[in-house]
Design a protein around this nucleic acid. Structure first.
Length: 674
RNA sequence: GCGCCUGUAGCUCAGUUGGAUAGAGCGCUGGUCUCCGGAACCAGAGGUCGGAGGUUCAAAUCCUCUCAGGCGCGCCA
């Protein structure tokens, strides 16, 4: 709601200035430092003063005197050297927020018109050769939250999880199974059916790394195996398929634990078999985007020049796309994949149902032939976000440069590398995990996770620990609650703690992981935010018990007869009461709380623009904190003045609803009790 | 060597397009509770925003230089 009003004010000011002074200036808006100074401010007069060569304060006074009334704005003030400060109509704001609660949550308004532009978000992308670790969790949490933000804003979103099932990482585990464990494809099939097959592979993968280190000659095995897998030949290919398929199912299960889902799993093997690359290669050659290097160190390779000036045949500024032995590099495949996402390949995968979620929705996987009917039209996006850690920004740049070289500038402009920093371990945590830290690294602030070495905190292990810790607390507080309820609550708390922890840092902050912080349920954490909601619910539960009414009474007068009576009522808090309780200065505290609750749209918008889910996390915490303070200061149920009591209850309802909505954007559920 | 990122309180981090007195959590010290459940609330101490110049009415934010740390730069992915 705050966003709506802020925009309205900016628009009105811009309009007024254009008409009155015949000037087109951008109108910035901000929050005054104190609530006594109003709710929306604009320093526009400073800019105006420069252009008109007049005193800013004088201009501000002139504007305040002349501007037409704006809906929702009660009055103006001039402050400081020439700030325009708007004071909102507090009662009207309350009603507006309340009304927005019932208007379909402001979501999915843009109906899925045929041909409406679609946004693809690609995230998770874990190599299917081992268990997921905390770094992967950050990727998924960021991607999933961003998807929620987009959908809330009415975008049509397709979630892709790319499966690199023919890469070296899978090959390594295949080598482990074949040469270290001496397993046949049938043995592997049995193994893969075990519940924690991904954990088994985690250890095996680390052993294979050692296996190479003991004798470098063994690395030739890797090249052979990789080739066999790519071409789909022999036991290696068979095992590779069993492994990657089983591990992907493990990953989906892990991600489902934290509420992360996908629409489609494009698999690298299908990109190869369907010869996506051939088409991309042809286009790249036709348009001169890549050249065959005839001499120099890259002789025999197809390379893409990256510098602007073409004459610079500087080898340093080119990227090899096709090796001299004719095989495609990773970037090459990625260009083809990115082209497919935009529907630029003129070719599509076949699709089969890979798995069904409990609610009936389906994850599809690509396949090379046949396929099943009923698959939605995947790909052909208008905009693409790739959630990939920042270490790969160079490669992402190459992919975008590839699109441009092909003449797809528009698509390149609409390709976003949604980058984020890695999750590392604090040295203490690494030691705790049983790893020896090289002397030189002891004083470093963090130690990088390495799947290759088996160094990392596995996602399911962390989730298990979170759940058992939460469970212990729940058992303490609700010894009499039925077992399934307690399990459900503990799960919600665990996920709340984990997702909040992963989302509260901005994207380019390296998270130095430590169990102490990640397992905390106090302070700036998910459970703190959830607890605020539970407190609000308790008030209504108690209230219902006392009044023996199921809900807080009555549909509110201002909301129309059809609104669900979940709480808001202005039945006994009319405009005069609003003024009395929310008015300045006595009502400033309550008003500030209401204002904050009504600012979710503003923060969600900022989060979307900056592609920064952390903004929503910060907002949720702020609101929870403000509510806890309010809860402590006002004892609602024992309030004597019935009108005031109604207002406090209404306020509580609004805050609760907004907080639940904010948490939902973060993928965090607010339990009934905890 | 080149490119990108980071440097804000003891620690971990916020600070959207430059805006009014730089914030939070943790930790520390001291308080609050005959309760709508302490996963809580309040108060206090604690900051030359790495450093130096510059642009501007206005700089933690923009520019230049500089110091420190990280990441990337492969016929790996």
């Amino acid at each position: 709601m705050y966003l709506t009003i802020e925009k309205r004010i900016q628009h009105a000011l811009a309009e007024h200035i254009r008409r009155r002074y015949e000037l087109d200036v951008p109108v910035p808006a901000s929050r005054p430092p104190k609530i006594e100074m109003g709710e929306v401010a604009s320093p526009v007069c400073f800019e105006l003063a420069k252009r008109l060569k007049r005193a800013p304060r004088q201009l501000a006074q002139e504007i305040v005197a002349e501007i037409a009334p704006i809906e929702g704005v009660a009055r103006w003030e001039v402050a400081g050297g020439g700030y325009l400060n708007a004071f909102l109509d507090r009662g009207a704001f309350f009603d507006a927020v309340a009304r927005s609660m019932f208007s379909g949550a402001g979501a999915a308004q843009k109906s899925a018109a045929p041909g409406a532009p679609k946004t693809i978000v690609e995230h998770t992308n874990i190599n299917p050769n081992k268990a997921a670790h905390i770094g992967h969790l950050r990727n998924a949490a960021l991607g999933d939250t961003f998807v929620r933000l987009l959908r809330q804003a009415g975008e049509i979103v397709e979630v892709q999880n790319y499966i690199d099932n023919t890469g070296v990482q899978v090959a390594d585990v295949v080598i482990g199974l074949l040469h270290l464990e001496k397993k046949s494809p049938d043995d592997v099939r049995q193994l893969a059916a075990e519940p924690r097959f991904d954990f088994y592979c985690w250890d095996l993968y680390a052993r294979v790394t050692q296996f190479y280190e003991e004798d470098k000659a063994r690395e030739s095995l890797r090249a052979e195996t990789l080739k066999a897998i790519e071409e789909g030949r022999g036991a290696a290919a068979k095992i590779g398929e069993i492994v990657s398929d089983a591990i992907v199912r493990c990953h989906l299960r892990t991600m489902e634990r934290l509420g992360v889902r996908y629409d489609v799993l494009p698999r690298e093997s299908d990109i190869l078999h369907l010869k996506f690359w051939d088409i991309a290669f042809q286009q790249l050659k036709d348009r001169g985007a890549i050249q065959l290097a005839s001499a120099g160190k890259n002789a025999g390779c197809w390379v893409m020049p990256l510098s602007e000036d073409r004459d610079a045949t500087a080898e340093d500024d080119t990227k090899i796309i096709v090796r001299s032995n004719g095989t495609v590099t990773y970037v090459g495949k990625d260009i083809a994949y990115q082209m497919w996402k935009f529907g630029l390949l003129g070719k599509d995968f076949h699709y089969r149902k890979f798995q069904q979620y409990p609610d009936g929705s389906i994850v599809w996987a690509s396949c090379s032939d046949g396929g099943e009917v009923g698959a939605p039209p995947f790909g052909r996006a208008a905009r693409v976000y790739n959630v990939i850690d920042s270490r790969q920004s160079y490669l992402q740049k190459v992919v975008m440069a590839g699109l441009r070289a092909l003449g797809y500038n528009e698509q390149a402009d609409r390709s976003v590398h949604f980058s984020y920093e890695m999750v590392a371990l604090t040295p203490r945590c690494a030691v705790e995990m049983g790893y020896e830290i090289p002397l030189g690294d002891a004083r470093k602030p963090y130690v990088e996770v390495s799947g290759r070495k088996g160094l990392g905190v596995k996602a399911d292990d962390l989730l298990d620990r979170l759940e058992s810790n939460a469970r212990a607390e729940v058992d303490k507080r609700h010894p009499d609650a039925p077992e399934p309820d307690r399990a459900q609550i503990a799960h919600a708390i665990a996920i709340g703690a984990l997702r909040y922890f992963l989302l509260k840092y901005t994207r380019n902050t390296i998270i130095a992981f430590d169990f102490k912080d990640a397992l905390s349920f106090e302070g700036e954490t998910g459970p703190y935010c959830q607890y605020a909601v539970v407190r609000a619910r308790n008030i209504f539960r108690k209230y219902a018990e006392a009044t023996r009414e199921k809900h807080f009474p009555g549909p509110p007068r201002t909301l129309g007869p059809n609104d669900p009576a979940i709480g808001v009522s202005s039945a006994s808090a009319g405009p005069e009461d609003m003024k009395r309780f929310l008015g300045s200065p006595e009502g400033n505290d309550l008003w500030e709380l209401l204002l904050l609750a009504g600012s979710l749209d503003w923060h969600a918008d900022a989060a979307l623009n900056a592609q920064e889910p952390a903004f929503v996390a910060k907002f949720a915490f702020q609101l929870a904190q403000a509510f806890n303070n309010f809860y402590h200061k006002h004892h609602i149920l024992s309030e004597e003045d019935p009108a005031r009591k109604t207002l406090l209850l209404n306020l509580t309802t609004l805050i609760m609803a907004q907080l639940v909505r904010a948490l939902d954007l973060l993928g965090i559920e607010a339990p009934e009790r905890m």
